[in-house]
Every structure is written in C-alpha cells, then in structure tokens.
Design a protein around this nucleic acid. Structure first.
Length: 528
RNA sequence: GCCCUCGUAGCUUAAUGGACAAAGCAGGACUCUUCUAAGGUCUUGAUGGGGGUUCGAUUCCCUCCGAGGGCACCA
C-alpha cells in the first residue's frame, strides 16, 4: 500500500524528490502521511502549506481508487486516507499470494553475511547470541525480500594463533586458560584421551580440540538455537592454501606496506584508520587482519557478492575501519562492506551485574539461556532491541515474566485465529468462500486489514536499513489489532455473507502471522 | 590521555529532522452465560544538565556529567 501511495506522489513531484511515507501514530492524521512538501519547500522557496495543497489537488485529479480522501494539515503534512477499495485489494492480495505475501521479487544482488563467529575454544555464550540471532533473522529478512544470501561463519582455527596454542596447552594439562565445562567433559572421553596422548605440540592439540568444540557448537546452533549457516570458512585453510603469501605480494606491488622495527606495516592512516597497523609481526607471523582480508576478498572478488555484511561484537568496533581501509586500498569499494556492531549485553542477576568472560569461565551459555526461557523467547528478546543499544538483560526477570512475554501475546493471536478456522470448518452456516468484503465495515475489521497491508513494507524497510526490531514491533501491533478484533467482533454466528468475509480476514491474518514467524524463526503453537 | 557507543516513564526498550515522545513490564480502576481472560477498556508516569543550528531537535553541532567498550607485533 505504501508503495502505491509513493507512486501516486511521484507522478506529481519533480523526479529527484525523496519521498518518505510514515504511518502516523494518531489515526486522525490518516493511514499514511508524508512530509514531502517540506523538502520541496526548501528547493522551490515556497510555503510548504501551499505546496502541499498543490500536490493534494494534483493527486486527486488522477482519481486514485485506493484513496478515500487526502488532507493537508498545518504546517504542511499531507495525510492519506484509504478507501474501501484499498482494503479489499489488500485482502485479495494476501489470500492469493499466501506463503508469498510480502515476499520481494527476485533480485540480482547477492549478499554475504558473516555472524556469530564464536571462537572454537569454548561454548556459544550470551555475548555471541545477540549478533548470532541478529544475523540469522537478518538473513531471513533479506532472503524473503528477494536477495540471494550466504550465511557465513568464520572459524578462528589457525594453528599458529595464540588462542589455539593456549587451548592445546590447557588440554595437555599445561595451562588453565580454557578450563571450562565444555573442555573438561571432552577430556573425559576415552577417544579424546588416547588421541591427546599421541600429540606433543600444543598447536596440534589445540587444533584437534578446536575441531571437536567447533563441531559441538555447529550442532548446537543448527539444532537447538536454529541459527543457520551454509558456509563455515576455516581460517586455517587460508594458511594451508598459501593465500597469505599471495595477498602480501599484492600489498607489496601496490606499495601499501612498509618495513619498520622488523615488522611489516600497512599504511592504514592513509585509508581512514587512526594509525598504521602491523600486518606481519617481527617474528614473521601474520596478524589476524591478513587472513581476515583474504576471507573478505574471497567473498567480494572470488565469489562476487555485491555486498558483505559483518556483524561484530562491541569489542571489535575499532576493527571495522581497519578492515574497510585495507579493502579500499586493495581496490574494493567501501560501500560494499557493511559492519554492524552489536553492543554489549549486560547480564544482571538479582540487581548485580556479572561479567561474561571466557578467561574467567563464568559466562552464561546460549544453551543455558534457551533452557531457562525457551527458544522463542530468547530469539524474540534479542531482536526486540536495536543493535546499538547497550542492553541490560535481567536473567531472573526474563524468566519470571515469561508468561507475560510479548512473544506469547503474538503467538496467542495465531492460536485464537486457528481455533476460529477449526470451529468454522464444522459449521455449515458459513460454508463457501467470501464473494466480497463489503460487510467488513467496523473499526476493528479495518484496523486489522490495515495492519495486514503493512507487512510487505515492513519487510522492505527492514531489508533496507537492517533494523530488525521493526519486525517484533510490527508483530505486536498486528497481534493487538487481531486481539481487538477477536474481542469485539464475531465470526461464527454472523450472517452468512459477513461470516464468510470475516473468515477470510482471519485466514489472511494467519497467513501474515505465519510468514512473519517464519522470518523471525519462532514457532507457531497449536494451542497455549 | 585519545577514540567509539549509549543516557528517554519505577524497570526494559521504540521513535535517527516532523504532528499531542510510542510500547511492554510493574502500579491503580473496570471487564468473561460468547470463536481459550495468556484477552479487552480506562489510568498514573519520561527525553541526564547547559548552550547552539532549524519553520520544527530524543535525533544534528558544542560543552559538562554519567555508563559501557576500544586504544597490542591478541583474535
């Protein structure tokens, strides 16, 4: 519906005008509203009120069927009120498109998303959960909007890295850094015990354990957290394929690096970073950036994704400019790389904060969280807040209020809707499909249809700005419209025509809710 | 010390230049002989302080205060 209104406006304003449409909070300002007269006022040096009136008249002269009226409100907003025809169009479209309602047409652009990236040195904990769930749902949205999406997990398993060596040392009893439950239970297995006996090198022991941990984590993510990936990119494989050397050659050829103090430095400062960065240490080993650059070039150059999105934790926020700088130095357009930073989740328990740190071994695992509050709640919870909010999460409170949770509110709507369908099925009084929707005239009918009609634009807007909390917010609004309808209106018991029309409306609600749940990755319970 | 992010109702969060700042939870008052009351209706209550830009600022700029994160030849 939004798109249709934008088209109406576009016909009567200069080509390059940016048209923004909002859904006003107060219904007296219409179903949709635009401030386009304000931006035009600056260019044309005319009063926004006068311009708004001009636009209103021009649109009206095209006799748009989807609009009942257009109002101009001081100081220059233009408010649109939908016609009955528009409501009917929405319902028909939903019933016709079914599973594909809201789905965007196939787009050429391919997007590669990288998220979660939990190190293979320990379990997936709450710190990973936010970015991980965000990445999973964002992938769903982008796919639903029509993009081809690759869901990727970069595995930090390089044998030469400090953390793998340290993991190996812990496994061999020569260190304590990674002495957590996951490792300890692995070490109890006879097969692991005997395998480790044959290994002397810490890096080899670390690589062996990392592989096992990674496998456990992958399994957990897929089966229990429903966070999906289609590619696990191994850092170690980059070393084995000698791709670092290849990249270094390119960096030298392009004069992007220099020697200082025995190390090799990248001229990061010339590419927007605050200072130059070491790429190869004085002992000859590469820093983390080099393999990561290889990985990004693999996505951007070899596999030719138009866009790559990385979701990093807050502790990596300084890393984005470095990565982008190096990539642009190598000739990649910065615009193709999007770095999203997931701010820290602070966990409070009984009003007291406790830190999640691998080093201290007192982290809360995602598995534990799911066990405590349920998968649907956990997923919904993290998606409800914007990524750049420092998020305080009271563990006890989440558990305590889980019955009053917004997730249940939304799921309850679909349970109620399904129940109506089930009862109607055995009721001969409302057999047959609706011939028209003229009988849907109450405020509740219309509000519900209006919300259903917003679904495609919610998907589209979210695929554009990646703000996933729009989805959960919309879910609440749609559910509210339905609960309201359910409370005040009847389906079974109404006259035949009306009952059929209402039944179609309920069916449409189920379709939209299911499509939305699919994107959010939450379940649709049969009863509650 | 420098850099990044954040500060909104009692609590957790929306609103990223637009209209009387929006929800949920918590608090108060109503509401089921009806397709599940895990529902509906009403209600109390907020932009950290101070400047500036703008027709219009939670949003942009400056400054102060507060919280978190980063400033490695860690990943």
């Amino acid at each position: 519906m939004k798109q249709k209104i934008i088209e109406l406006i576009r016909k009567v304003v200069p080509k390059e005008t940016v048209i923004e449409i909002t859904v006003p909070e107060n219904s007296k300002f219409g179903d949709y509203s635009t401030n386009v007269a304000f931006s035009l006022a600056k260019i044309k040096n005319k009063s926004p009120l006068v311009l708004a009136e001009e636009i209103r008249k021009k649109i009206l002269s095209t006799k748009p069927a989807i609009l009942k009226k257009i109002e101009v409100a001081s100081p220059g907003f233009i408010n649109f009120f939908l016609s009955d025809k528009a409501y009917e169009t929405v319902l028909k479209e939903i019933l016709k498109s079914q599973k594909n309602y809201g789905r965007g047409g196939k787009r050429k652009e391919k997007i590669s998303l990288d998220y979660l990236d939990a190190n293979p040195t320990g379990p997936v904990h709450l710190g990973h959960a936010r970015g991980g769930l965000y990445g999973d749902v964002l992938s769903n949205v982008l796919e639903f909007a029509g993009y081809k999406v690759s869901r990727e997990f970069y595995v930090n398993n390089a044998k030469s890295s400090g953390q793998i060596k340290s993991l190996g040392a812990t496994a061999l009893g020569k260190g304590k850094e990674y002495e957590h439950d996951q490792l300890l239970s692995l070490l109890k297995k006879p097969s692991v015990k005997s395998a480790l006996k044959k290994i002397k090198l810490e890096s080899e022991a670390g690589a062996y354990i990392a592989k096992l941990i990674q496998k456990e984590n992958e399994n957990f993510l897929e089966k229990k957290a429903k966070i999906h990936f289609n590619l696990f990119f191994s850092e170690e494989s980059i070393y084995q394929k000698k791709l670092i050397e290849k990249l270094l050659t390119e960096l030298h050829e392009k004069n992007l690096v220099y020697k200082k103090d025995g190390a090799l430095w990248f001229i990061a400062k010339s590419y927007g970073d605050s200072e130059d960065r070491v790429f190869v240490r004085s002992d000859g080993t590469p820093t983390y950036v080099l393999p990561d650059l290889v990985y990004h070039l693999d996505r951007l150059r070899s596999r030719k994704y138009e866009k790559v999105i990385d979701i990093f934790g807050a502790d990596h926020h300084g890393y984005g400019p470095r990565l982008k700088g190096a990539l642009s130095a190598l000739g990649v357009n910065r615009e193709r790389v999007e770095v999203l930073i997931a701010q820290t989740v602070r966990l409070t328990k009984n009003g007291k904060e406790f830190k999640m740190s691998k080093r201290e071994g007192v982290f809360v695992t995602l598995e534990e969280l799911i066990k405590q509050v349920g998968l649907d709640v956990a997923r919904f919870f993290f998606i409800t807040v914007s990524l750049d909010t420092h998020f305080d999460f009271d563990f006890m409170l989440a558990k305590k209020h889980s019955l009053k949770n917004p997730v249940y509110y939304v799921q309850y709507a679909i349970v109620r809707a399904e129940n109506i369908l089930k009862k109607a099925k055995n009721n001969p009084a409302i057999a047959g499909p609706a011939s028209d929707f003229k009988s849907l005239t109450t405020k509740e009918d219309k509000q519900l249809i209006l919300e259903l009609g917003r679904f495609p634009e919610v998907i589209e807007d979210t695929a554009r700005d990646y703000r996933l909390h729009r989805l959960t917010k919309y879910a609440g609004e749609l559910a509210r419209a339905f609960h309201n309808f359910y409370q005040k209106e009847r389906v079974i018991g109404e006259a035949k025509e009306k009952a059929a029309a209402r039944l179609a409306l309920v069916t449409a609600t189920i379709i939209v809710l299911k499509n939305l749940f699919g994107v959010l990755g939450i379940s649709t319970p049969k009863k509650m």
